[in-house]
């Protein structure tokens, strides 16, 4: 029974992170899968969302902190919306400059943005506390739930150990429910949006940009809107992450964890398909977790083990691109395709 509880608790942790990655992947899907915008700077929007939420809904600077700004302990929803907003503004700024560029230029520009943001996070300690990160970010409703659990446990002293352990993990179940609910609502919203007239124009642009422009659609404006929408999602994923991990530091937003793995998730699941995006996120994160176990049995150092796992993920991406570029589910078909 103990192991069952252990496994359950682990699955909850796993699913929360996979769910957050699913939000990121859905955001990337709007940008790349539906609009063809090659964003290699996902980590930048993810990070700025996370830090914004931490500064809005997080604790004020402590005595040992370098930072002097922020931490107004606003409610979690404010943090969430704030992260979406700031991320969207950043995307508006970047997109306005680069949307009209060809794919590869956009890729280079987005990677530049992500790197510059990382530099700012690392160096502007007055804002972000630099490499020391931001600690003690509150999780929504944490005190309430913990008190409830503690009260329940003290009122029932005769409970077996495994039951106690299960109940102690209640908050994580709550957060998982939060993330999954968020994901479901997001999925539903996106599917509606993509079937709307706006969504149809987007798909028309992706199929044949020249034809869409000839029909009088302002292609650049549509692309920018999609870019901003995707970025807002990425920002919100950052907020969800910040209030779950309760500690922010620049490592979690490195190119691999913040951008590359999201791309692999999207390509593996099937770009242009929201179900594929979510599936890809859970699948690849599952693979990542599995390799963690496996390398535990091998005589490697931590650095070596993680390097090996990254090599594996990289090879998987290359293999998918060569062998099955459409991913597992392929593109979502909306209406019967007109024969050309």
């Amino acid at each position: 029974m103990d192991t069952v509880v252990g496994v359950l608790n682990y699955l909850v942790f796993f699913s929360i992170t996979a769910g957050i990655y699913a939000v990121l992947t859905l955001g990337l899907n709007i940008q790349w899968g539906y609009t063809g915008l090659f964003n290699i700077g996902v980590a930048g929007f993810y990070a700025i969302g996370a830090y914004t939420s931490a500064l809005l809904a997080g604790p004020p600077p402590g005595t040992l902190d370098w930072r002097v700004f922020g931490g107004w302990m606003l409610p979690f929803p404010v943090g969430l919306l704030g992260s979406a907003l700031v991320s969207a503004i950043l995307a508006l700024f970047i997109g306005w400059i680069t949307i009209r560029l060809r794919e590869d230029y956009l890729a280079i520009a987005t990677i530049g943005i992500a790197e510059v943001l990382r530099l700012i996070i690392k160096n502007e300690a007055w804002l972000t506390n630099g490499v020391w990160g931001i600690k003690n970010i509150p999780s929504p409703l944490f005190p309430t739930i913990q008190r409830g659990v503690a009260g329940f446990l003290s009122a029932h002293p005769g409970l077996p150990d495994w039951a106690r352990r299960l109940l102690e993990g209640t908050y994580n179940w709550f957060y998982l429910a939060l993330v999954l609910a968020f994901l479901l609502v997001l999925y539903w919203l996106l599917e509606r949006i993509l079937r709307s007239p706006w969504g149809r124009v987007l798909r028309a642009i992706r199929e044949d940009e020249v034809a869409a422009a000839a029909q009088g659609k302002n292609v650049a404006a549509f692309k920018l809107q999609a870019f901003v929408l995707g970025a807002a999602l990425m920002g919100m994923a950052g907020s969800l992450y910040a209030h779950y991990a309760r500690f922010l530091s620049v490592e979690k937003f490195e190119p691999f964890y913040g951008t590359f793995i999201v791309w692999v998730m999207l390509v593996a699941g099937g770009s242009g398909n929201n179900k594929g995006a979510i599936l890809g996120a859970f699948l690849i994160w599952g693979l990542w977790a599995a390799t963690d176990f496996l390398t535990g049995y091998l005589p490697f150092t931590d650095v070596q083990a993680s390097a090996l796992r990254i090599v594996l993920v990289g090879l998987i991406l290359i293999a998918i691109l060569i062998l099955r570029p459409r991913g597992l589910l392929g593109e979502e078909k909306f209406v019967s395709r007109m024969l050309r």
Partner: peptide, 9 residues
């Protein structure tokens, strides 16, 4: 995209 993968590898 493949080159990004190659880079990480």
């Amino acid at each position: 995209m493949a080159s990004v993968g190659v880079a990480f590898v």
